[in-house]
Design a protein around this nucleic acid. Structure first.
Length: 209
DNA sequence: CCCTGATTCGC
DNA sequence: GCGAATCAGG
């Protein structure tokens, strides 16, 4: 492929639109990202307004509005307060036993069985008293709502690579159509989550479909 | 590791 | 002019 006027034009447009070199190379086809970068330099396109949100750096500002007018925290350090605090180490059990209600993953039947050792005449026998069935495909466990749904990167077609999840998201006819885009391991077309959905073992296949 | 852009340098 | 190789960084 050569740099025809049209291709160069496309290059300029995409580059100024903030597409990465690899994305552009992708769309143009027949060129590597290096070729694109090289061309960009030769054309002296450099300066792009905005890095256009690098996929690798979603950038989560979330700047916790730090109260600028917060107490200057000079902490006059009351000569007596400090020692007082130290002595008050016998902190009243205000939040003693929070009685934490354990939230467990829906999977993993947790304590599969309670073991109780029974000693019989010197011999040690292991008696297993299952409190839960080793595995019961219960209705509870089947609720997908309890499943952890990964946040997709919502990449566009051109942003996909050989290692991005190609699980479709949205209406293929809509301009908002995207792909999951999360990392897909080792040649798999999908991320682990979507691979599970896509390649459901006959036993799991049911509800989702 | 995967991805970005920047530079170099033989062709 | 071109772009693979390589470098530097996130």
């Amino acid at each position: 492929m050569s740099w025809t006027d049209e291709r160069i034009e496309t290059l300029k447009r995409l580059w100024s639109d903030g597409h990465s070199a690899s994305q552009i190379a992708n769309e143009l086809g027949g060129v590597s990202r290096n070729a694109v970068i090289g061309k960009v330099h030769r054309l002296k396109l450099e300066s792009r307004i905005k890095p256009a949100a690098t996929p690798t750096t979603p950038a989560a500002p979330l700047a916790a509005a730090e109260p600028v007018n917060a107490a200057p925290a000079p902490q006059p350090a009351p000569r007596q307060a400090a020692p007082a605090v130290l002595e008050a180490r016998e902190t009243p059990p205000v939040a003693a036993a929070p009685a934490t209600p354990r939230i467990l993953p829906s999977s993993a039947p947790q304590p599969v069985a309670q073991q109780s050792v029974t000693r019989t005449l010197g011999a040690t026998a292991l008696k297993i008293e299952p409190q839960f069935a080793p595995y019961e495909p219960s209705v509870e466990e089947d609720r997908p709502s309890a499943e952890v749904v990964p946040i997709s990167r919502n990449l566009t077609l051109v942003q996909l690579s050989e290692r991005t999840c190609k699980w479709p998201i949205g209406d293929p006819l809509s301009p908002d159509f995207r792909f999951c885009g999360n990392h897909s391991g080792d040649g798999s077309p999908y991320c682990t989550y979507h691979a599970r959905i896509a390649f459901q073992p006959a036993s799991e296949r049911r509800r989702v479909r």
